[in-house]
Every structure is written in C-alpha cells, then in structure tokens.
C-alpha cells in the first residue's frame, strides 16, 4: 500500500560523495547512459555503491511500511461494521502483508537478507512511513486510511514503478494493480459514512480532521528543504519531487472530499487559479521529525507488536526448517 513518499535518511549526502569517488568512472558512465536510455537495471548488473545503498533503504522502508501499515487497519477487522466490510478489510490487510513480502524480495536481490531487514526494523534503525505512527481511533479512521492514505501511496507508487531498478518496478506493478481495489473499497466505505446519518458524518469529519496533518506530512518536507539529491532523480531512484506528488494528490482528491460536503482543517487550502498549483498552510514539520525519531503516539506499540510476532513465531519457523534443507545463502535471483 504505502511507500512513504518521504523516505527517511539521516546520513545521505556526506556518504554519497565519499562513495561516489570509488566507483569506476567508465562503468558509472555506462550505467548512467543505460538509465538515461530508459533501460532497467537488474540484480546482476554493475551499479554504483550509492545506488545500491539508496535502493536498499528505499525498498526496505517501503516493505516495512506495508507490514506496519497493516496494523492500524488490522486492529479493526474484529470490529468492522458488517460482514461485507469485514471480508473486504481482511482481503486488503492480506494484500498489504503480501506487498511487504514482494518488496522484501526486491530488496533482497540487492544483497541484504530478509533477517537483517527485520532486525533493523525491530531495533529502530530502519524507518517506515510516519503515517502509521498514528492510531485508528474509530471505524471512520479506517475509511480515511483506506481511501486517502492508499490514494497518496498510489501517487507515490505509480511514480516509483517507472524507476530504474527492475525487481522493484515488477513488484510495484503487481502492487499497484491490487491497490486499485484498496482505493475503491476505501472510497466506498468513506462515501457510506459521508452520506449517512448525522452521527456517521460527524465521525468521518472528526477522523478527517485528525488525519489531515499526517496526510500532508506523507509526501515529506517541501522540496526546498528536502535532502534528496539530483543524483537520485538522475538514477531514477526518486521519480518525482515531494511537492509535485503532494500537489498531484491534492488535485485528485481534495475535490472528492469537498463534493461530499466535508471540510478540511486548513483555511488556506485552495487551488491557485493562476499557477494551477494547490496552496496550503505549512504542516508542523517539527512534529513530523519528532514522530520519525520515535516519539509519535504509536511508534512503540507498532514495534512491540512486530517484536512479539517475531518472538512468538520463532518456534514454528524453527520447527518447519529441517537442518539438511538449509542453504547457506538464500537470496532471490530476480
């Protein structure tokens, strides 16, 4: 579902310059020419160390986002309003876990093991999309997530699917196909509340008010302060700027919210008729970085649930693995 448009990196630029010097300039030129020509890079190809590092970070964090992202919604499966909604929610949550698997596989082709990625998630070293550090307080929250967070994720994933790394593009192609069902079922549940009783409308409006800031955070800081280099754009690792994706999202979805008679908690939000761009109040970016650091309302709970699952799943993983079957290296080929 949800590759955070903004992928956290606290060590990016200095390391990039350092490693850049070590790459063979001839191979680097051939690599860049290949990408410029629209070709995909495959796991066995030569690639700059920094390209590999950035891709692992990006795909791994995307995978973690799918797995952690299933938690706020998964908690509502037992309390979904009605059988049809419950079936759809189970199917969606299963999809998200499946997306996590597809993405872990894509990251593994770059040489980092599944186990190392999971350990980095549990220790807090690897991040995931910040939006999942907020609680889903009511059923209306689930509809806001299913509609708007998935919509935001689609904007991001459709862009990334045109990137340069073959295994990531292939995984995203499959993911985007399933995502269209998520968006539709979310929109359907959202509309049901928006056109329902006064109590349902009020519940949805309340959820929208609480989620609007995390949604505005979703695509990351504005381009003028974002740490992403032109190199990542040139290498087709990052396919669209944070501001462009945010604008694309607002353009497509704000009208769909307003047409249902709902409001958004930002008096400055409007489309500038001259520039064609959306204008909005700056969300609280200090809060955004606080939550990334681990101080959001649900960071601890999310990781603890994962930790519990890994800890209590160990016995069955071990019971199923016969020692004579174990391979020394286990990485996918494509």
């Amino acid at each position: 579902m949800y590759g955070g448009g903004y992928i956290y990196d606290d060590s990016g630029r200095s390391r990039q310059q350092e490693e850049q010097l070590q790459d063979d300039p001839v191979k680097l030129a051939a690599f860049e020419a290949r990408i410029a020509g629209g070709e995909k890079i495959e796991p066995g190809d030569w690639m700059p160390a920094e390209y590999r590092r950035q891709l692992i970070r990006l795909i791994e964090q995307h995978a973690h986002s799918e797995i952690i992202g299933a938690l706020p919604e998964g908690t509502w499966i037992t309390r979904a309003p009605g059988f049809k909604r419950k079936l759809a929610l189970i199917a969606k949550v299963q999809d998200e876990i499946g997306h996590g698997q597809l993405l872990y596989n894509a990251a593994e082709t770059l040489g980092k093991s599944r186990e190392a990625m999971i350990n980095d998630l549990l220790s807090g070293k690897s991040k995931y999309s910040n939006v999942f550090n907020y609680p889903a307080e009511t059923w209306a929250d689930v509809t806001v997530i299913g509609f708007l967070i998935d919509a935001a994720a689609i904007v991001n994933q459709v862009a990334n699917a045109k990137g340069s790394y073959g295994p990531y593009c292939r995984a995203l192609e499959r993911i985007c196909y399933e995502e269209s069902f998520h968006l539709k079922q979310g929109h359907d549940a959202f509309i049901e509340l928006a056109t329902g009783t006064p109590a349902q409308k009020a519940m949805l409006q309340d959820a929208l008010n609480r989620w609007w800031q995390p949604i505005m955070h979703f695509f990351g800081p504005p381009d003028k302060v974002s740490a992403h280099s032109e190199k990542l754009m040139q290498w087709k690792v990052k396919m669209a700027s944070n501001d462009d994706m945010r604008n694309q999202f607002l353009e497509a979805y704000v009208p769909k919210i307003w047409e249902l008679g709902l409001t958004l908690p930002d008096p400055l939000l409007k489309k500038n008729a001259d520039t064609g761009k959306w204008e909005f109040s700056d969300p609280d970016w200090d809060l955004f970085f606080e939550v990334i650091k681990g101080n959001g309302p649900c960071n601890k709970e999310r990781l603890n649930v994962r930790k519990w699952a890994e800890e209590h799943g160990r016995w069955i993983r071990k019971a199923l693995m016969r020692e004579e079957e174990r391979e020394r290296t286990a990485l996918p080929v494509a």
């Binding site: 908690t75 309390r79 186990e115 709970e301 603890n304 930790k307 800890e311 174990r326 990485l331």
Partner: peptide
Amino acid sequence: SLDPRVNRLRLNNSDGSFSIEEGENWNVFE
C-alpha cells in the same frame, strides 16, 4: 492501546530487544 488485541495479549509490554538469526526466514524459491 486502542487495539483490543494489543491489550489482551499485552503486546505493548515488551521492552527488551529481540533479533532473528540469519536463515531463520528459511530458503528462497522462485
């Protein structure tokens, strides 16, 4: 937690670190 499972199973109480071993996630099949 707002999640009844988290409360019921006390999933929110872990404070120790936990890590999995290399190979614990089995082999890979195409």
